Simulated assay, not measured.
Amino acid sequence: MNRCQTLPLVTVLVTLTLAGCASNQNLRSTDETTWQPSGEAATAGDAAKADRLWQVFERYEGTPYRYGGTSASGFDCSGFIATAFDEALGRQLPRTTSQMLSAGDVVERDQLRAGDLVFFRIKGKDQHAGIYMGGDSFIHSSTSIGVTHSSLNGYYWRDRFSQARRFD
């Protein structure tokens, strides 16, 4: 084969390889009609809160998932949330997802602001949570990849969203 004949083959192989990576639950949806927040405009305080939470996220990004974990050696979803709120905002939140669901103020999906907690129904019950960061992004500790950010519109999360809570 000459160089011109191998280029299409290489292109096909690269495309197939990238498509194989598309099973990641953090991919953004390409659907133009997906949900976008239309709630309250971000204030300077919301922007500062989001910035501090992003700094904590960057410090722990990639930390592995560990059930019951609350430290850099491993976090579960609520352990990461509690740590992020403590370190970024100096706020103490309830420790478990079920306790978080019982506290805070209910927020409609179209009224989300950075720093709100988002909850997801998995296997019939609310058992996963993250921190909404604006747009359609949230940060959380995923059982499959640890501390990460994901899209509310991502194929895994969009149909599992159940509710949100605000802790002002």
Rank of each mutant, 00 (worst) to 15 (best):
L53G: 02
F85V: 01
G62H: 03
D110C: 04
A164H: 06
A88N: 09
G154V: 04
A103W: 02
G74H: 09
A42D: 13
D168H: 14
L9Q: 14
R121K: 13
E108N: 11
F80L: 01
P8S: 10
M133K: 09
G20T: 06
A114S: 11
T6W: 13
F120L: 04
D31V: 01
G130V: 03
R109D: 06
G146C: 00
F120K: 10
T96F: 02
S162M: 03
T33Q: 15
D46S: 03
Q163G: 04
M133F: 08
G62L: 06
T6I: 11
D136Q: 13
L112F: 02
R66M: 05
E87N: 06
S141W: 07
D168C: 02
G20R: 12
N2W: 06
G104V: 01
D110H: 13
R109Y: 05
P37Y: 10
Y156E: 07
G45I: 08
F161W: 15
V106E: 12
C4R: 15
G154R: 08
R165G: 01
D126S: 11
T15Y: 15
L7Q: 14
D126P: 01
T96E: 09
A22R: 14
S23V: 13
F120I: 02
A50G: 03
N153C: 03
G135Y: 10
Q25N: 12
R91N: 05
S137R: 15
T70L: 05
V12D: 11
V107I: 08
S98M: 12
S98L: 08
R28A: 15
C77H: 07
D136T: 12
D110Y: 08
F167L: 01
M100Y: 06
Y67T: 05
Y60L: 12
A72Y: 10
V14Y: 10
S141A: 12
R158S: 11
T83D: 09
R165C: 01
A103M: 00
R121Q: 13
R109L: 09
F120V: 04
F138W: 02
I131H: 07
R166C: 01
I139A: 10
R95E: 11
P64Y: 05
L27Y: 15
Y65H: 03
A47E: 15
E40R: 15
G74V: 02
G134Y: 11
T83K: 13
L27Q: 09
P64M: 08
W54F: 13
E108M: 07
Q36G: 13
G124K: 11
V118T: 08
A47F: 09
M100Q: 13
L93I: 00
D31A: 07
A88K: 09
F138N: 04
Q99L: 02
R109E: 07
K49P: 00
Y156K: 09
T30R: 14
L16G: 09
L152V: 03
E108R: 10
S102C: 01
A72M: 07
E40K: 15
A41D: 12
S150G: 05
G68D: 07
F57M: 03
L152W: 12
T148N: 09
R109F: 05
G79F: 06
R52T: 09
L18H: 06
A48K: 15
A19G: 12
T30Q: 15
I139Y: 11
M100H: 05
D31M: 10
L152E: 12
F167T: 02
